[in-house]
Design a protein around this nucleic acid. Structure first.
Length: 482
DNA sequence: TGGGGTTAT
DNA sequence: ATAACCC
């Protein structure tokens, strides 16, 4: 069973919380006009109207436990029970809980990790294929509950449960609501008020979250955490409160406690490295600092968009929707290395990246209409020494992708090497530490037939775009320009 | 820091 | 094309 620990405690807490539902927050005033049974539950909850289109949502954030390590332990069960790290180049990018007991941390150097834990077993995780495949299986499983699933990286998903919760509520007879229970932890052990429709909805959400985790375990042998709350920010923050393989629901009255539990604003999802640095200059380091800082000055400093968004985040407010991810917008492969300083070397590396990418994009079925080459130059060092060049893929090359196998290889290498020489002056010495190839601008395979309206409206097929100059997408560097 | 991803400008 | 964000 997925639940490893905390099970007893959370059940007892939940029972205790329900034994005195009136102990915490006052009863919602929304139901107070109800008739017959002032102290019963029957009259009130179904009558509490959540204003249509209002911001009262039920969101779950699902976060797999040390995902790459779990996938490796499934591939090789002998690794189970041993301290395991997944290695990319000189780093342990993630590790299981056995390894964490020894002090191994994410993105720790292999040397340091081995020092902390000499018995550490390492597996190479530079090829993401199996992780990516398992990641999409998880997303697809969650999509069976609701189509509103948004991926965040390979190991996290948001699901908007609002509609599902509404449907389950309709199935309840009013006198059943006293039997609604929470699944998993309640943040801060806040007492549950069964007369509060928002509490009820979140509890139903917690039950669905438990079903999702059960399903992930039963069908995919994967464990993870879940957080249920009224928006993505809070769901994400609360999912991490009880850590391996547990779930937590946040009731609205505790949301301020949750955001103030962050010790620094950099821990707020949406406030990254750059923004945190700029806020630091302004003397803003805590959530409270950001809450109370002058909005006007913040807008002048960061721009109105970022300022308003992050200041709302500091209050736990986040109206961003769960945007269904659907199929990927891009496919890329990269490789980093100590040194690449010749064109031939670069070409070989690009060919390897490209071969893998063509396979992936072929399996997807859609056709990329744009290619991009990315490099990182040595000593550019400061993260963001990356430069890129992209161009449209000529339609005759697009056709070769997916159909045959490697017909597209040679023309694509030619295109990529032109992009390469556009970025790197090969007559001068150079030193690269990363190469990446990306296929994007993916379109469904063209079903348009000659002579039809679709044919003439499909840029890759119609004569107007196959000859003469193309005036669209001037940002792309066209191969004709070389 | 690796090997990925996304959206906004 | 770059810059920011996420994992």
């Amino acid at each position: 069973e997925p639940e490893e620990e905390g099970c007893r405690d959370e059940e007892e807490d939940a029972v205790r919380a329900m034994e005195r539902p009136e102990a915490g927050a006052a009863c919602s005033s929304l139901g107070s006009s109800g008739p017959e049974e002032p102290d019963g539950l029957a009259w009130s909850v179904h009558d509490q109207v959540v204003p249509t289109g209002s911001s009262s949502r039920v969101i779950v954030h699902v976060d797999l436990d040390c995902f790459y390590a779990q996938v490796e332990m499934i591939s090789n069960p002998e690794l189970k029970g041993k301290p395991l790290g997944v290695q990319q180049k000189y780093h342990v990018v993630t590790c299981n809980y056995e390894a964490r007991k020894f002090g191994v941390k994410k993105l720790m150097k292999v040397r340091d990790a081995k020092e902390k834990c000499p018995q550490l077993v390492l597996v190479n995780g530079e090829d993401l294929t199996r992780y990516r495949e398992m990641s999409y299986k998880v997303t697809e499983l969650l999509e069976q509950f609701s189509p509103l699933v948004e991926r965040l990286g390979f190991d996290e998903n948001f699901v908007d449960l609002t509609e599902m919760v509404e449907k389950r509520l309709e199935q309840f007879q009013s006198d059943d609501l006293s039997a609604v229970t929470v699944s998993g932890h309640v943040y801060k052990n806040q007492p549950i008020n069964l007369r509060d429709i928002l509490h009820i909805r979140l509890l139903i959400g917690s039950q669905i979250a438990a079903e999702m985790r059960e399903s992930m375990y039963n069908h995919l042998s994967l464990t993870g955490c879940a957080g249920v709350a009224s928006n993505k920010l809070l769901a994400k923050l609360v999912s991490g409160v009880f850590k391996p393989n547990q779930q937590t629901v946040l009731l609205p009255e505790s949301s301020q406690d949750l955001i103030h539990s962050l010790s620094h604003i950099k821990e707020m999802p949406g406030i990254g490295y750059k923004t945190a640095k700029r806020l630091e200059v302004l003397g803003i380091s805590s959530v409270s600092d950001l809450q109370t800082f002058s909005s006007k000055i913040l807008e002048k400093e960061l721009g109105i968009s970022v300022a308003q968004r992050i200041q709302k985040l500091s209050f736990g407010e986040d109206n961003s929707p769960v945007t269904p991810s659907g199929p990927p917008q891009s496919f890329s492969e990269e490789d980093s290395f100590k040194k690449c300083s010749s064109e031939v070397e670069a070409k070989n590396k690009i060919e390897e990246l490209l071969a893998n990418l063509l396979n992936r994009v072929c399996r997807d079925g859609r056709k990329p209409h744009t290619v991009r080459l990315v490099i990182r130059r040595y000593s550019s060092e400061k993260y963001h020494g990356r430069e890129s060049r992209q161009c449209p893929i000529p339609s005759h090359v697009i056709q070769k992708i997916g159909t045959g196998n490697y017909d597209a290889m040679t023309p694509m290498v030619d295109i990529l090497m032109k992009l390469f020489r556009n970025m790197v002056n090969v007559k001068m010495p150079f030193h690269l530490t990363l190469l990446s190839v990306c296929f994007c601008n993916l379109k469904a395979p063209n079903t348009a037939k000659k002579g039809t309206i679709d044919y003439y409206l499909t840029p890759s097929l119609s004569t107007t775009s196959c000859s003469g100059k193309r005036s669209f997408k001037m940002k792309d560097t066209h191969m004709e320009d070389f």
